[in-house]
């Protein structure tokens, strides 16, 4: 039976807002379908793990991100894995970690891990609230964002085009955008947490991980369908609160 090894990187240092839920969703969506999941938590001071099949990095305060970056640990491994096509998702500070540079409000300019060729800059204001994605063939993304940065995406595609709510680009950006994508790497500010709230993204990551193992994601079972229907209702509730009641999500 296929075992998918999920690496929850910096789980202790970065995991402030239910980020464990992303890993739980990945784990359950494998085991419910009869596959095996192995979750490893690795942080500062731990030995570098063998190449995982999927990587998750959660959110946290700036002080924790700076401490992780200052440790210099697991950065080169992340670059290698990204280059090899390992699916990676970073949320909030975990997204910032993947960037090329992080420029603080006080002018300090620190290198990120450099997996995504983007720049993160502290913004004067904070963006806090629910967001709703634009329609896509896979439905609409939704979540809660809470950050104080502006992302210079350079030429990278965003993770989400937003129909409602504030994005993480320049204020005047139209439409508002969130996060970034490059190859198998996703960075986002969406909370909810993002994967239980948006199971298509979870399945995309799992599908990519399985493809590299020469396997495919089996059909959803009843438990997966139940969780997905509730997540759909949760997204619909957000759409309703953002003045888009009744939209297909």
């Amino acid at each position: 039976m296929t075992t998918v090894r999920i690496l929850h990187l910096f789980a202790r240092e970065l995991g402030i807002n239910g980020d464990r839920g992303n890993v739980l969703a990945l784990d359950r969506r494998l085991t419910w379908r009869g596959l095996r999941a192995q979750v490893d938590e690795v942080g500062v001071g731990d030995r570098a793990p063998a190449e995982p099949h999927l990587v998750h990095i959660g959110s946290g305060p700036r002080s924790a991100l700076e401490a992780v970056l200052a440790s210099g640990e697991h950065g080169s491994a992340l670059r290698d894995w990204a280059a090899a096509g390992v699916p990676i998702i970073g949320v909030g500070a975990g997204f910032h970690l993947l960037s090329e540079r992080i420029v603080s409000a006080d002018g300090a300019d620190r290198p990120g891990v450099g997996v995504l060729p983007i720049v993160i800059r502290d913004a004067p204001g904070r963006v806090v609230g629910e967001v709703l994605g634009a329609a896509t063939p896979a439905g609409r993304l939704a979540g809660f964002v809470n950050h104080g940065v502006e992302v210079d995406r350079r030429s990278l595609a965003p993770f989400a085009v937003l129909e409602r709510g504030r994005g993480d680009g320049p204020r005047e950006e139209e439409p508002a955008l969130d996060g970034a994508r490059s190859g198998s790497v996703i960075g986002t500010h969406l909370g909810g947490p993002v994967l239980p709230m948006n199971p298509t993204v979870a399945d995309e990551l799992l599908g990519a991980a399985l493809a590299r193992l020469g396997a495919a994601l089996p059909e959803a079972d009843d438990r997966t369908l139940l969780a997905d229907e509730r997540a759909r209702q949760a997204r619909a509730a957000i759409a309703g609160r953002l003045g888009r009641a009744g939209l297909a999500v």
Binding site: G21, L24, A25, R28, G192, P196, M197, R223, L226, A227, R230, A231, Q233, A234, A236, A237, R241
Partner: peptide
Amino acid sequence: GTKAWQWATRLAYEGIPVGAV
């Protein structure tokens, strides 16, 4: 409550049965 479905999703992932939302 307005966040009922988010809680219900959480409970689904924990395998905790829900009577009604």
